[in-house]
Amino acid sequence: MSERAATAIVVGASSGLGRALAAELARAQYALLLIASDRRDLDALGASLNLAHGIAVRALALDLGREADPGARIAGTLDGMPPPAALLLPIGQSREDDDLSLDAGRIGALLAVNLHAPLAIVHALLPRLVESHGTVVLFGSVAATRGRGRNVVYASAKRALVSLYESLRQRYRSRELRVQLYELGFMATNLTYGMKLPMPVAEPDAIARTVVRRLERGSSKRYVPRWWALVALAVRWLPWSVYRRMKG
């Protein structure tokens, strides 16, 4: 298989779903721009994907919690690469103490990763993505289905991504820019490792296959795994008097 003349940008590529997406995109012969905070992880991932699939890989080490303009840094790194065909933003940072007890600094740090970074990166790359009729892939969370006393800032940011998804879809037709939002259930990552969870976890590799397979389809919002749509529906429709008594 020959390399596509297109670049996929994966933000948060070093672990979990981001790493799985990078591997799946490499299998599909996209050139890759990988972004994560630690150069060592990026170099290892990039080298292994280049070796296994013969694709071009470029890496950018970026701390999204501190970077004022991550979009500009990424846009600058794209110079000389094939046109960007897909921007995937599987990023998310949560805290155990995100329970209405965070101070302003910590709230800002969570918002920087979970909301500011996706907004800023999408804004910066939008012209190039529209020019190439590309795809923006956002990742929400079932944690944002209905507000709870935990993951307060995280869920607020993830809920805001739904608004970003709607804004992009309202502004662009599918043939100009595809916008896809995946609402993720529990995933088998280092964040859930060892946790007792009420629902089965999905493997990042399986989700990545779904995402990459659907990359060139139209704009859509989708729960993965699909059955999470029913869970979300049930949570949303629960009477408030019942919902507020639920743990967590």
Binding site: S15, G16, R19, D38, R40, D41, N190, Y193, G194
Partner: peptide
């Protein structure tokens, strides 16, 4: 106790 790091810093 088992740690399952997926990044070098872990």
């Amino acid at each position: 106790r088992v740690q399952r790091p997926d990044r070098y810093r872990l």
